[in-house]
């Protein structure tokens, strides 16, 4: 009796704000959430494809329609875009330590407010092939957001950190390396996680605009065109799974490279 009261109390903690809960409780809540989601999905079958239909469509896409190859194309494209975006973004954000570069970075940041599709023609003139066109559209789509986030991180570094490095006799470039580059590595990796997630959001659109290479986005649009909703749902699930794995890998990388980053957070 007393034991069940303790367990009930622990479950109640999961519903209270700002509490730490034990891993088994957390896993229990996750499993329960998934079960509720699947039940609701099953109940909605008829309006949308049932989970079984989606699984069958997934098997068909994998065995008959070359889902693996399409997925590999998309993953490769996305990773390539993330690499370019990261390189361009970090170079621009760190360059904001030089006052003359700040207006350029501010202009890049404002590109968030321009639609990506409208620029497709410009990129067509520039790109050698369909792959390059998709790549640069993705990079163009992700970079302004990532640059905005990272430029803000650099701009908000407290003056005291710079002064501390200077009092140790560091040159200004050494201060940039220690305070700006190494000192913001954890935030750069966190911003990268968000940009990488955005990449998967944009991928479908980009692969829809340029279908020459295929990819999971093109595949999804084809299935959508033929009203194969079970296949569309299966592809959404695949993108979700790949995105979650990628996000988990980046989170692991951040924890490994920057173990200090979460030491003072409440939800460690």
């Amino acid at each position: 009796m007393a034991r069940s009261a303790v367990s009930f109390h622990r479950v109640l903690e999961a519903l209270s704000p700002n509490r730490q809960i034990a891993l088994p409780i957390y896993l229990g809540v996750t499993v329960a959430s998934v079960a509720v989601f699947l039940a609701a999905w099953q109940l909605a079958a008829g309006v949308i494809p049932s989970p079984a239909d989606v699984l069958a469509a997934l098997a068909r896409l994998w065995t008959e329609q070359g889902l693996f190859d399409e997925l590999a194309t998309s993953v490769t494209l996305n990773l390539e875009a993330i690499a370019w975006t990261t390189a361009i973004t970090l170079a621009l954000a760190y360059a904001t330590v030089v006052p003359a570069v700040r207006p350029i970075v501010a202009a890049v940041s404002k590109l968030r407010f321009t639609g990506m599709v409208g620029w497709a023609f410009v990129f067509t003139l520039w790109a050698r092939d369909g792959h390059q066109l998709k790549l640069w559209m993705l990079v163009f789509g992700m970079t302004p957001f990532f640059v905005t986030a990272m430029a803000a991180v650099v701009a908000e570094l407290p003056k005291e950190r710079f002064d501390h490095a200077r009092t140790l006799g560091m040159s200004e470039w050494r201060v940039v390396w220690e305070v700006v580059i190494r000192g913001t590595a954890d935030q750069a990796l966190e911003a990268l996680r968000q940009s990488a997630a955005m990449g998967w959001m944009m991928l479908t659109m980009v692969e829809g605009v340029v279908r020459s290479e295929g990819g999971i986005g093109a595949m999804m649009l084809n299935e959508n065109k033929h009203l194969q909703l079970d296949a569309v749902f299966a592809l959404i699930g695949v993108v979700l799974a790949v995105g979650v794995v990628q996000d988990g890998a980046l989170a692991w990388l951040r924890r490994t490279v920057c173990p200090y980053a979460e030491l003072t957070t409440e939800r460690r």
Partner: peptide
């Protein structure tokens, strides 16, 4: 010049990384 005198600031900044 900065770097000639040691400074311990009020909130003791260190390289957190």
């Amino acid at each position: 010049r900065a770097g000639m005198v040691g400074v311990v600031f009020q909130h003791y900044p260190l390289f957190e990384h």
